[in-house]
């Protein structure tokens, strides 16, 4: 038997909803082609097959929320040539990072009759807080087009190109009238990383930041326009939804709360 020289692809899950790895299975037209170009070495949701490392590409979904997972991600890093985090949980701690500023013991008591059975950390943190990450794909969920682009680029041996521009740019390209300026509705488009194709504004609602902050996000500049159309606590909650612990969104939330205290 000849040796299989195709690159080894591994998909790993931490605290998450499964949605980002499902994005790969959602590539109905491309799935069998992609699967033919790699050896799927680890993808528990899709296969019983488990091949030993090292892995050429590891896709990591989810955030670190338990002592065991903090250890597991180090092992995965050691056995992976390229480690790519996929989605808001892996890149920013995700919606479950809402616990970071709360009393986790109290939360556990609120949800579980026997919180003492649980072994969890007080925080939900992104993968990059624990190990080096080679590439991050944003979104809740990630855009499957971006995922395919990354995989096919890497297989072709060229660097993937993910644009870092705010949702606003996608809106302009799509010819969507600005709902913040023209309609006076709260929208995080100016500070949010693009990739969704201006989805929410195209569906007649404001962006709630599921791709996290754009690289040059300036929540300070957005504070006044937002304050003009929404209550401070509404703005604070808007920043504190899918990527609550992303640094620029934390700033945005604090500004909203501060603005409230000034008045």
């Amino acid at each position: 038997m000849t040796e299989d020289r195709r690159p080894k692809l591994a998909v790993w899950k931490f605290a998450s909803c499964d949605g980002c790895q499902l994005s790969l299975l959602d590539c109905e037209d491309e799935l069998l082609m992609v699967a033919g170009a790699v050896q799927i070495a680890q993808f528990t949701e899709a296969t019983r097959t488990v091949l030993p490392g090292p892995y050429d590409i590891s896709l990591v979904e989810g955030s670190i929320t338990t002592p065991h997972d903090a250890e597991r991600i180090r092992e995965i890093r050691r056995s992976s040539k390229l480690l790519i985090t996929i989605g808001a949980c892996a890149t920013a701690g995700g919606v479950q990072a809402l616990r970071n500023t709360a009393d986790v013991a109290e939360m556990a008591r609120a949800v579980y009759p026997h919180p003492e059975y649980l072994d969890v950390l007080a925080t939900s943190t992104p993968i990059a807080d624990h190990v080096d990450v080679d590439l991050e794909l944003r979104g809740c969920p990630i855009d499957k087009g971006q995922l395919l682009h990354v995989l096919t680029s890497l297989l072709a041996g060229r660097p993937p190109q993910i644009r870092d521009e705010p949702v606003c740019v996608s809106c302009k390209r799509a010819g969507v009238t600005c709902i913040l300026v023209a309609e006076g509705r709260a929208c995080l488009g100016p500070v949010t990383h693009g990739g969704c194709g201006a989805l929410c504004p195209r569906y007649d609602r404001g962006c709630f930041g599921c791709y996290g902050p754009a690289g040059d996000a300036n929540p300070e500049a957005l504070a006044r326009p937002l304050a003009a159309v929404a209550q401070p606590e509404q703005v604070a909650r808007l920043y504190s939804t899918i990527n609550p612990r992303a640094e620029a969104f934390e700033r945005g939330r604090r500004l909203a709360v501060l603005g409230q205290e000034e008045t």
Partner: peptide, 8 residues
Amino acid sequence: PPRFFEAF
């Protein structure tokens, strides 16, 4: 790992 949705 639990994510505590009902709490937050």
